[in-house]
Design a protein around this nucleic acid. Structure first.
Length: 327
DNA sequence: CATCAGGGCCCTG
DNA sequence: CAGGGCCCTGAT
């Protein structure tokens, strides 16, 4: 689909100082997550589109510091000049989504000696959990992940982005920027189905409607975890698997672990019990094992998970893992 | 060629 | 609370 490119020519740069220690690359690039047309990464630099308060923006994060003395240069590209207050609110949101003010000391103190988490902490020291997406965006991603292989999820997501998103150009990169909540108001299910999302069209449509009806991410962030979970489960098409992802990536609860999807089950079985993926350990037993990481259980597993994908990315041969990756 | 399972969820009985 | 159906796609 040919679309006009929106050029983001106004550039503002702000400096962000994350808490110490901070690791740039494993924070801004998660090789275990599926990639899509809204971002690019190379060591030391991340480009990311960002739909924020009605504007399409391009963000460029550059590593200007070290683990012990972190500094990020964040360049914000926009179509028009941005106000100071807009930039301030955006900076705060960036810090929130990437957990740049997270204090990891207690987590490291307790688990640096753990046989599995210890080595991961050593390699990824300073890595933050986090995700660039808003609740709305993550919900859409969550829906396209359901009951589909990675390749198909990427295809569905890309189709949606190219149909309803905006192609932007900044810093010589062309990337797709997400559409705003409510954009699908006058789109019917059939049009969505044409993008090969199948029965997920109904969920996507209903989620978009909920945002028109006043679903508010900021307000939901202030609620406790149980309330958040109940509210999210009310959404059509959102079940335990999607909620579990949301509570970690969007609402930043490190202590919540109640779900393991089939492919993750196979990978955890190998990592934690050295059990072959053909004969995986039960979900119940996996969850019981994670209890040892207490209030940091989700963070601990995130470290081990990311370590695995970074090892693969760096060229380590992990034959059993290759078998589990369906592209 | 047909059949099937896949990074769930809803709905029914 | 178990299980069928749902869209589409690549694998077999």
């Amino acid at each position: 689909m040919a679309k006009r490119v929106k050029k983001l020519t106004h550039k503002t740069t702000v400096r962000i100082k994350p808490t110490v220690p901070f690791a740039f690359d494993p924070t801004f690039h998660k090789p275990g997550h599926f990639t899509s047309g809204d971002n690019l990464w190379q060591p030391g630099t991340r480009w990311q589109t960002w739909a924020w308060k009605g504007k399409c923006l391009g963000l460029k994060f550059e590593n200007k510091g070290t683990v012990a003395k972190p500094l990020i240069a964040l360049s914000i590209f926009a179509g028009k000049k941005l106000s100071r207050s807009f930039i301030d609110s955006l900076k705060k949101e960036v810090e929130y989504r990437y957990n740049l003010n997270l204090d990891l000391k207690e987590f490291y103190r307790r688990f640096s000696k753990d046989r599995l988490v210890g080595p991961a902490i050593k390699k990824l020291r300073g890595m933050r959990p986090g995700h660039p997406s808003s609740l709305y965006e993550y919900l859409i991603i969550g829906i396209v992940l359901q009951n589909a292989s990675v390749r198909r999820s990427i295809q569905m997501f890309q189709n949606l982005l190219e149909c309803y998103g905006t192609l932007v150009e900044f810093d010589d990169k062309k990337l797709w920027c997400f559409w705003e909540p409510g954009r699908l108001k006058n789109v019917n299910e059939q049009e969505l189905r044409a993008l090969k999302v199948g029965y997920r069209a109904k969920s996507i449509k209903k989620i978009d409607e909920q945002f028109i009806n006043g679903l508010d991410e900021e307000k939901l962030r202030e609620q406790d975890r149980e309330t958040q979970m109940q509210e999210l489960l009310k959404l059509y098409g959102v079940g335990p698997a999607t909620v579990w992802y949301l509570l970690f990536d969007v609402f930043h609860h490190w202590d919540f672990f109640n779900h393991v999807s089939p492919w993750e089950q196979k990978i955890y079985s190998k990592l934690f019990f050295n059990q072959s993926p053909e004969n995986p350990v039960s979900v119940k037993r996996l969850l019981k094992y994670f209890e040892r990481y207490g209030e940091y259980k989700q963070l601990a597993v995130h470290y081990i998970w990311e370590d695995l994908w970074w090892r693969r990315k760096k060229g380590e041969k992990i034959p059993w893992l290759e078998k589990e990756i369906r592209t």
